[in-house]
Design a binder for these strands. Structure first.
Length: 423
RNA sequence: GGAGAGAUGGGUGAGUGGCUGAAACCAACAGUUUGCUAAACUGUCGUACUGGUAACGGUACCGCGGGUUCGAAUCCCGCUUUCUCCGCCA
């Protein structure tokens, strides 16, 4: 959430910045300011009454001790009225806070000043490109056909056992998955990240903490009986480690990495976007998360981008980096860079990583703070990025590395992990 | 799943209705003093909201949420969670 102080200090600034995300915040911001004033007034009144009540209660205690029962009872009478008033005010206060909160969580994060205007993915800026676009033989196949031909991924079997978007990986396909996961994890560990294995289901508080709730309620699988959500990314459990915590300034940066299966309902997706590995309901991803001092979070962002680029380089995949425009950015992000690899048979770019700085937006929801040099508590900055998501990496690896004879070459960096150099 | 016992500040742990926002000890931090890798002493030492330029106040919080009471860490109800025993189980 945007800190309430930010909104109060300069409502117009908030409205203007959110316009970059094509979000009209005027009404909400105005109402938030009004409700916050009401909240403060109500609290002042309530606190005063409670203070009086507390004093009287203490008096009564003293009088009873001294045996002055009659006097005590007289004061008791007087407190009845106060009690009624405080009940009313408390109710008003709670209602106000609730209304305030409902509106507050509807405001997306403010985009960083470098975020370009734009409506959709069309308006994203390519800021970096690397690698050679491979020239494939005439008989080149898209990855879903390669997967079937070499019996390494079975989409049909997934349909039968679970449903669309839940493929089986088998043989060398399964081993390739395992190899990529290990490769990504080891690279992250070498870069100073600590590995975690998180739970794959989280409670509603956690979903709220990272901002999936209430914004993306319908995108998560929900186990109603236990009120648990299947994680759409390891970001959720890994970032929620820090919910309701106060860190020390000398702990920064905290760098965590986790592999997890990710579950997404992907309601509303269709067409070529969902063909093969392009979009799945369950997929594997290695996620990196950093918790950082606000003064250094943009340094960490560069650090994470460099890490992701190095992975793609080692996998010999041509990629480019996009600076997302306001309209294409996620609800919680202040700035996001997407990494896309070239999928040579589909002849299109596929997003394989999204690296974001959330600044203090998630931290404010999570209540993750640190004790600053001046002894005051401040909100931390949180960042995360995929490093990397597997399916589209696999798609590009299969397509780009197919040879004249139809076999598929495994990039050198991966061979010690797969235990084979060709499919 | 059944039975029982717990959940207090960074840690250990006292506290069973008012003088307890919470003893004591440990840890941490600051200072004083003496000095050889340390001791002694003194002080500080939770969070959030809120009033005030500030000094300094107010309110709430003893797992979470309700209730009883003039007054709750303390009594009652529900939930979560930990431990022990039993059952089941990879």
């Amino acid at each position: 959430m945007i800190p309430i102080q930010t909104i109060r200090q300069d409502p117009q600034f908030v409205i203007d910045r959110l316009a970059v995300k094509n979000f009209n915040a005027k009404d909400i911001v105005t109402e938030i300011c009004r409700l916050d004033d009401l909240r403060r007034n109500t609290q002042k009144q309530l606190d005063d009454i409670l203070a009086t009540s507390n004093k009287k209660a203490a008096e009564i205690g003293m009088l009873f001790k001294q045996g002055k029962t009659a006097e005590a009872n007289a004061i008791k009478e007087a407190t009845t009225q106060l009690k009624l008033q405080s009940k009313d005010l408390e109710q008003l206060y709670n209602e106000t806070v609730e209304k305030l909160n409902t509106l507050h969580v509807q405001l997306p994060n403010l985009p960083h000043s470098s975020v370009p205007n734009g409506k959709s993915a069309e308006d994203n800026e390519v800021v970096y490109t690397e690698g050679e676009i491979p020239q494939l033989p005439d008989n080149a196949l898209p990855h879903w056909e390669l997967a079937a031909k070499w019996k390494i991924i079975d989409f049909e079997l997934g349909n039968k056992v679970t449903g669309a978007g839940f493929p089986f990986y088998r043989g060398k396909g399964a081993r390739l998955q395992r190899a990529l996961i290990n490769f990504f994890l080891n690279e992250a560990i070498a870069a100073g990240y600590e590995e975690y294995q998180p739970p794959l289901a989280v409670n509603a508080d956690s979903g709220f903490g990272t901002g999936q709730l209430p914004d993306k309620e319908g995108q998560m699988y929900h186990c109603e009986e236990d009120d648990l959500y299947l994680i759409p990314t390891a970001e959720v459990p890994i970032t929620n480690i820090f919910r309701n915590t106060i860190l020390n300034a000398d702990e920064f940066p905290i760098k965590n990495v986790a592999y997890s299966a990710c579950f997404r309902r992907e309601a509303g997706s269709y067409g070529k976007d969902v063909r093969g590995l392009n979009r799945l309901h369950q997929f594997d991803k290695v996620e990196i998360v950093q918790i950082q001092h606000p003064d250094h979070s943009y340094q960490s962002l560069e650090d994470m981008k460099a890490h992701v680029a190095s992975l793609l380089r080692k996998l010999e995949l041509p990629f480019h980096v996009l600076r997302l425009c306001g309209g294409d950015m996620s609800f919680t992000s202040a700035i996001t860079f997407d990494f896309e690899v070239w999928s040579a048979a589909q002849k299109r770019w596929l997003e394989v990583s999204s690296v974001s700085n959330f600044e203090d937006y998630q931290a404010n929801r999570l209540k993750c703070r640190f004790k600053g040099e001046d002894g005051k508590t401040r909100l931390v900055h949180t960042l995360n990025g995929s490093a990397l998501a597997l399916p589209r990496i696999v798609a590009a690896l299969l397509e780009n590395n197919q040879m004249e004879d139809g076999h598929i070459r495994i990039p050198k960096a991966l061979q010690s992990y797969t235990g084979f150099d060709i499919i």
